[in-house]
């Protein structure tokens, strides 16, 4: 079992013919992911990687019955591409693009409201259900099938954490890279809600970092109910340089949020096991599931 994606998930690729999209789509297909076609305006009717290319997401969805789409479009075109996917009824949109203007992300967030579409990212590595489906840029070879759900804001630290889990013999159910942008789609809370009902997930690992408030929100959510599975968290950035701590505007509304100490405290209060050292992530999860 898994959440969000599995071996039957049919995936489109927006920006399909670009260099990066081609590279990762090829890898995903080799892994067994059901990539069913791509969307590139003006290239409809062509084939790429032996798959059909369409002009619009709507057309692609009608022809292929895809439910997910992965975006490799440049930031200039990202807002319109995400809007198009939402309007075409795509259920899961995974946006790899980095550098999307923040006001565009707010526009996307507003457009997502009142739809059932889910957005992962932007500026994220994607989502993988090991052995079944890999959407995005993650190196599939490091993942193993198993029962730990992993959600991370950072990409490289995500891979490090997964490598540690595998060293402990702990495979993963579904791993989600939600991205570290200020405004993004799915949050820790959204993921925790899905893992809660997934019989294939035995425990959840959250990889957070300094800044923002998604860790605090996760803590608040977990404290509000009797979460049925152990949750372990690692929060990076305790020793971040001051520029990362206060380089941004809006100190007036921070109200004590964003710092690692408060995040860790809130998570501990919510019964989350917080890992102290980044080399102890794997061993801590192993103890939590025993």
């Amino acid at each position: 079992m898994s959440i969000l994606i599995n071996s039957r998930t049919r995936v489109l690729c927006q920006g399909f013919t670009g260099y990066r999209a081609s590279f990762f789509a090829h890898r995903a297909i080799e892994y067994g992911t059901k990539i069913v076609g791509g969307v590139v305006p003006g290239r409809g009717g062509q084939t790429h990687l032996n798959l059909p290319v369409f002009n619009t997401v709507k057309e692609a969805r009608e022809q292929t019955n895809a439910s997910a789409s992965v975006l490799f479009v440049p930031p200039q075109a990202a807002k319109d591409a995400v809007f198009e996917a939402i309007d075409a009824g795509i259920e899961l949109i995974v946006c790899i693009t980095e550098g999307i203007p923040i006001l565009d992300m707010l526009r996307i967030k507003q457009h997502l409201q009142n739809t059932s579409a889910r957005l992962i990212g932007p500026n994220c590595p994607g989502v993988i259900t090991p052995g079944q489906c890999n959407i995005g840029i993650m190196p599939a070879s490091i993942y193993q099938q198993g029962k730990i759900g992993v959600v991370s804001r950072s990409g490289t630290l995500f891979y490090e954490a997964v490598a540690q889990l595998c060293r402990e013999g702990l495979g993963q159910s579904t791993c989600i890279g939600i991205g570290a942008d200020v405004v993004s789609g799915m949050t820790f809370v959204d993921c925790l809600k899905l893992y809660k009902h997934d019989p294939g997930t035995e425990a959840v690992l959250l990889i957070g970092e300094i800044g923002g408030a998604v860790e605090e929100e996760a803590a608040e959510y977990l404290a509000s109910l009797n979460y049925p599975k152990p949750v372990v968290a690692y929060i990076a950035g305790r020793n971040a340089p001051p520029y990362l701590r206060m380089g941004h505007s809006g100190a007036i509304i921070a109200a004590g949020r964003g710092g690692t100490d408060k995040k860790i405290e809130a998570l501990r209060d919510a019964n989350v096991t917080v890992v102290n050292s980044p080399v102890e992530i794997g061993t801590t999860v192993r103890r939590a599931v025993r």
Partner: peptide, 27 residues
């Protein structure tokens, strides 16, 4: 990667080592 960079700094500090810089390579 910024996340791994932050974690590496935290790890050094835990072992009484002092980082000379923070660096975030482009993706």
């Amino acid at each position: 990667g910024a996340g791994l960079a932050l974690a590496t700094m935290d790890l050094l500090k835990l072992h009484q080592l002092e980082p000379a810089n923070f660096l975030d390579l482009p993706p």
